[in-house]
Computed example of a mutant assay.
Amino acid sequence: MLGIKEIEEIIPHRHPFLLIDYIEDFKPGEFAVGYKCVTFREDFFKGHFPNQPVMPGVLIVEALAQVGAVAILSKKEFKGKTAFFGGINKFRFKKMVKPGDKLRLETKIISSKGPIGIGSAVATVDGEIVAKGELTFMVG
């Protein structure tokens, strides 16, 4: 398991934009599974939406990308680098993520060639899919 300090040693994201609380499991270059414990204190809930707080879909995608970045950037040859978005494909949102939810984030690297690759990403809450799709990344 990786906590915040260990995650910060792998990826460059920091509060308030670090959207994962811990990594439960990972294998460098292959996959990572992380969690975001969604609380009512998240800044984005002030405006999204005041009377019906919902985690923005783009932030769920970003959280999945950060988990994927842990998988990719934990490879020795990518240490100290940054993973950038190259594309967001086939994403679907199935359910809303609300305060109190524990968001499970899993990204598997399904193909890679050099610094470019694709990850299959799935976000769930209580075993139910809330979002899934593919993320293209470029390490630079």
Rank of each mutant, 00 (worst) to 15 (best):
N89K: 15
K36Q: 10
R41I: 09
E128G: 04
G47A: 04
I88G: 03
I110K: 08
K98R: 15
L19D: 13
V38N: 09
I23Y: 04
I20R: 06
P115G: 00
M138T: 11
K79A: 14
I88K: 10
L135K: 02
G68E: 13
S120F: 09
G34P: 03
I10R: 08
T136M: 07
D126I: 00
D25A: 04
G140K: 14
K90I: 11
I116M: 15
I109E: 02
I4M: 02
S112T: 08
A131C: 08
A131T: 04
A131K: 02
G114C: 05
D126S: 05
G47Y: 02
T107V: 03
A71S: 04
M1S: 03
P53S: 08
I72C: 03
R14C: 10
G29V: 04
F44N: 00
G100I: 05
H48A: 09
N89G: 08
F49A: 14
A63L: 12
P50W: 00
G47M: 01
L105S: 12
F26Q: 05
G87T: 06
F26K: 02
I23K: 09
K76V: 10
E24T: 03
K94F: 14
P12I: 07
K102E: 06
A63K: 08
T124N: 01
A123G: 15
N89E: 15
G86S: 11
E62V: 06
P53I: 05
I118M: 08
Q66F: 12
K94H: 11
T39I: 13
A121Y: 05
P53F: 07
K36N: 09
P50H: 05
C37P: 00
D43A: 14
E9C: 03
V33A: 00
M55Y: 10
N51K: 11
P16G: 03
F78I: 12
V130E: 00
V130R: 01
V38H: 05
L19H: 11
G80F: 03
S111V: 07
N89D: 15
G57Y: 12
F26S: 05
K132V: 03
K27C: 14
I7W: 10
K75S: 04
L59E: 09
V70N: 06
E6P: 10
G68H: 12
G34C: 05
D101C: 10
A71F: 07
I116Q: 13
D21G: 02
I4E: 02
E6L: 11
V125F: 05
L59H: 07
D101A: 08
M138G: 06
M138Y: 14
G80V: 10
P99L: 09
E42C: 03
H48V: 09
I7C: 07
L18F: 01
F49Q: 09
K27W: 06
I11E: 01
A63C: 07
V130D: 01
F85Q: 13
F78N: 12
G3I: 01
K36R: 13
H48G: 12
K46E: 11
K76Y: 06
G133Y: 04
Y35C: 03
I116Y: 13
F44G: 00
E8C: 13
G140L: 14
F84L: 15
C37R: 15
A69D: 01
S74W: 10
Y35R: 03
F45H: 00
E106C: 01
K46V: 02
K81T: 12
F17W: 06
P115F: 00
F40S: 12
A32C: 11
F49E: 13
I20E: 05
E8F: 00
L105W: 12
K94D: 05
P53R: 07
K5S: 15
D43K: 13
